[in-house]
Amino acid sequence: MKETLASLLKPFADFCFEALNAIPLTGARIIFILVMAALAFWITTFKDENPKNLPEYSGKPSGFLLFHDLRFWAVCILVLQIVLVIVFK
């Protein structure tokens, strides 16, 4: 039973292995960067958090408000991840 199942699935498993193995590491790195960049872009399409509407931020200068937009921090984290992928081989 086990051998039969393994022999049935093996060609597909080998195909997946070969296909992924054919992608060079530079390509893999680009895939990771694109995945992170796509998420960062998607996060920026969320509605503006507009911290001006929160009582604790009323009257604060607008430059200060950027740091209270959580989308900004999410993008920073993802950019850092992209930098790590680029810097470390």
Binding site: V35, M36, L39, I43, F46, A74, I77, L78, L80, Q81
Partner: peptide, 10 residues
């Protein structure tokens, strides 16, 4: 972790 945590947060 970083990608899933950002997804989890939003």
């Amino acid at each position: 972790c970083l990608f899933p945590m950002v997804v989890a947060a939003f």
